[in-house]
Design a binder for these strands. Structure first.
Length: 495
RNA sequence: GCCCCCAUCGUCUAGCGGCCGAGGAUUUCGCCCUUUCAAGGCGGCGACACGGGUUCGAAUCCCGUUGGGGGCACCA
C-alpha cells in the first residue's frame, strides 16, 4: 500500500466529451430531512448544466443509510425542488429507463457488483468489528498517525477466514485500492492528486447487505450513464475511490465538478442556528422561488461583471460550470431579501394576492381577497418578503388600536387638524384617492401646516400607525365610512 | 495529527500578465424625489492576506507563511 506509482489521470472528463443532448446530470440527495439551500444550489447547477445542453436531468434518492432516511423527507425534497421549478426527466414520480431511482429498491444490483468484485479480487471480506476499528482509529490518532483501515483482512488465508466465521463474526466487504496515487480532474478545480498512503481500503458493502455511499453512488452513476457529476466540495475526497470502483467496473467515469460550500456569516457551515437553511423555510417566510433561484445561482457563479438579474431562461442560456468560483460563499440573507423585494415588485398583483392569503390567515387576518388584490399595487413595492404583508394590510380588515407612536401623536395637540380633516372629507362626492388628496391638500394650505403636520395625525387615526402605505390610497381602499369613523373616534378620544 | 481545497471592498463577485490609480451588486452613509415608509435617481466610504521570487511589466504565474474550509466511518 505504500508503493507510489506515477499519478494516473483516471478521470480526464472523457465520458463527458458528451455534449448537447447526450449530457446526463443528476441530483442525488439523501432524504434525511429538509432540502438544505446548499443542496438546492447543487441541484440547481446540475439542472442548469443539463438544461443548458438539452440533456437529461435525473433525480436519484440515496437512501442507503436506512436509519436516517425517511419517506417524509423524500416528499419534502420533491416538494421543495418542484417549488424551485427544478424538474427532472427521470426519477421518483416520473420513472425512467434506469430505475429504480431509489437505491434501497435495487439492492440486488449492488450485491451482484460486490460479488463480482469479490471474485475478481478487487474486494475482500473484512471481519473486523466496528468496535475494533474504532479502537484502532483512536489509537492511530493518538499516535499522530493518519487513521484509516490497515488492510489486515486483505491477506486473510482460508483458515483464518474460517476461524472468524466459526466465531460467528459477520463481515463487511472492502474495496482493495491499487496502491498508487490517483489524480482527479475537476471541471472547476483542475487536477488534484491524492497520495496512495491516504487511500485506504474502504467498505463498499455493510455486513447487513446494504451498500455504502461510496459504492452505491459510483455504481448508479455508471448504471445511469451519467456524463457529469456536480456535487458539494465535501465529497471531493470520495472521488478517487469512486474512480477506482468505476475502473473495476470497466466503465468510463463522468466528469466531476465540486462546488464550494455555502457557509454562514461566521464562516462556519450553514446551520439551523443561522435561522434559514431549509428551502421550505424560505417559502414559509415569504420568499419567491425565482428570487431564491436567482440568488443561489449567483452564489459561486456569475454571468459577467454587471448582470444581477437572470430569469430561468437566461440562467439556462448562460450557465457555465467551468466559471464557478472555487471559494466558499457566505450566505447573505440581506441580499436575498433585497432580491426578493425586486421580484415581488416584478410580480403581477393577481399572483401576489393569491400568495398573500396564506400569510394573512397565518397572522389571523380574515381578509377579503378582492381588497387584497386592490391593495397590492401600493404595498408590493414596500416589502421584501410576503411575510411583511399582514403588518401592512391589517388596518384594512380589522379595527385599529394605535401603536405606541401613533397613540402618542393622537394624544398630542392635533384635534384641530383632525376636525378640519373631517369637515374637508365629509362632503366629498367621490371617495377616491384623488379627491382625498385634494381635500387634505386644501386643509394643509388653509391651516398653514407642513405636509407632515397635516397628514401624520390622519394617518395615525386611520391606520393606527405612523408608517403605512400611501394615505390617500389607503383611505380609498378602507372606504368612506370606516375612514371617517376612525378619524371621529380619534377626535372623540382626544376630547 | 495527516491529506485535500481555497484566499479581490463587511458580503456575493468581475478580473484569466499590460485596457486596474481594480469594475458591478448588496450593506452602510449623504443628497435628491416625497404625505409616512418604501421604491427610484445621484454621490461617498470600502478590497487585491503577508513575504519572497519570475517578468520590461503581476490582483493575475511560481514558492513559502498565515488564515479559512473540507476530509480521514459498516454517514452521505
Amino acid at each position: 500500500m505504500t508503493e507510489t506509482g506515477a499519478p494516473q489521470v483516471v478521470a480526464d472528463g472523457s465520458a463527458a466529451a458528451a455534449a448537447g443532448s447526450d449530457v446526463r446530470c443528476r441530483f442525488a440527495p439523501s432524504p434525511t430531512g429538509y432540502l438544505h439551500v446548499g443542496n438546492a444550489r447543487t441541484a440547481l447547477f446540475s439542472w442548469l448544466l443539463a438544461r443548458r445542453n438539452g440533456g437529461t436531468f435525473v433525480l436519484r434518492v440515496e437512501d442507503t443509510d436506512r436509519a436516517r432516511s425517511t419517506d417524509e423527507a423524500i416528499e419534502i425534497l420533491i416538494h421543495s425542488l418542484r417549488w424551485l421549478g427544478i424538474d427532472w426527466d427521470e426519477g421518483p414520480e416520473v420513472g425512467g429507463p434506469f430505475g429504480p431511482y431509489r437505491q434501497t429498491e435495487g439492492l440486488d444490483h449492488f450485491r451482484e457488483v460486490t460479488d463480482r468484485f469479490l471474485e475478481a479480487g478487487t474486494a475482500y471480506r473484512c471481519y473486523c468489528t466496528p468496535e475494533e476499528l474504532e479502537d484502532r482509529r483512536r489509537a492511530a490518532l493518538k499516535r499522530g498517525e493518519t487513521p484509516g483501515y490497515d488492510g489486515r483482512c486483505r491477506t486473510l488465508g482460508d483458515k483464518e477466514r474460517a476461524a472468524f466465521e466459526a466465531e460467528g463474526r459477520s463481515f463487511a466487504v472492502r474495496f482493495a485500492m491499487p496502491g498508487n496515487d490517483i489524480a482527479v480532474h475537476d471541471l472547476i478545480r483542475g487536477e488534484t492528486t491524492f497520495p496512495a498512503a491516504d487511500l485506504k481500503d474502504f467498505v463498499i458493502m455493510r455486513s447487513n447487505g446494504v451498500p455504502t455511499y461510496l459504492l452505491a453512488a459510483a455504481v448508479d452513476d455508471v448504471r445511469m450513464k451519467m456524463t457529469h457529476v456536480i456535487r458539494g466540495e465535501d465529497l471531493m475526497p470520495s472521488t478517487p475511490r469512486q474512480l477506482e470502483i468505476m475502473k473495476a467496473l470497466g466503465a468510463p467515469p463522468p466528469a466531476y465538478a465540486h462546488l464550494p460550500l455555502i457557509v454562514g456569516p461566521n464562516r462556519q457551515p450553514l446551520s439551523k442556528r443561522f435561522g434559514a437553511v431549509a428551502v421550505e423555510h424560505f417559502r414559509e417566510t415569504g420568499f419567491l422561488p425565482e428570487a431564491l433561484v436567482n440568488y443561489l445561482a449567483l452564489l459561486g457563479w456569475s454571468f459577467d461583471e454587471k448582470t444581477t438579474f437572470l430569469d430561468r431562461a437566461q440562467l439556462i442560456g448562460a450557465f457555465d460550470v467551468s466559471h464557478v468560483s472555487r471559494n466558499p460563499a457566505v450566505f447573505d440573507l440581506q441580499k436575498l431579501e433585497w432580491m426578493n423585494g425586486h421580484y415581488i415588485r416584478e410580480s403581477d398583483d393577481e399572483r401576489l394576492a393569491g400568495l398573500a392569503g396564506e400569510f394573512l390567515s397565518a397572522a389571523g387576518i380574515d381578509a377579503d381577497p378582492q381588497l387584497v388584490l386592490r391593495a397590492m399595487p401600493i404595498v408590493k413595492e414596500r416589502i421584501h418578503t410576503l411575510a411583511e404583508l399582514p403588518g401592512m394590510l391589517r388596518f384594512l380588515f380589522e379595527d385599529v388600536t394605535p401603536d405606541e407612536k401613533a397613540a402618542a401623536m393622537l394624544a398630542g395637540d392635533h384635534v384641530a387638524t383632525l376636525r378640519a380633516a373631517l369637515s374637508a372629507l365629509e362632503p366629498l362626492p367621490d371617495w377616491t384617492a384623488d379627491a382625498i388628496h385634494q381635500a387634505l391638500g386644501g386643509l394643509k394650505e388653509s391651516l398653514g401646516l407642513s405636509s407632515k403636520q397635516a397628514f401624520q395625525p390622519v394617518r395615525a387615526a386611520v391606520t393606527g400607525t405612523l408608517v403605512s402605505p400611501p394615505l390617500y390610497e389607503s383611505m380609498e381602499l378602507l372606504g368612506r365610512e370606516r375612514s371617517l369613523s376612525r378619524i371621529r373616534a380619534a377626535v372623540d378620544a382626544a376630547g
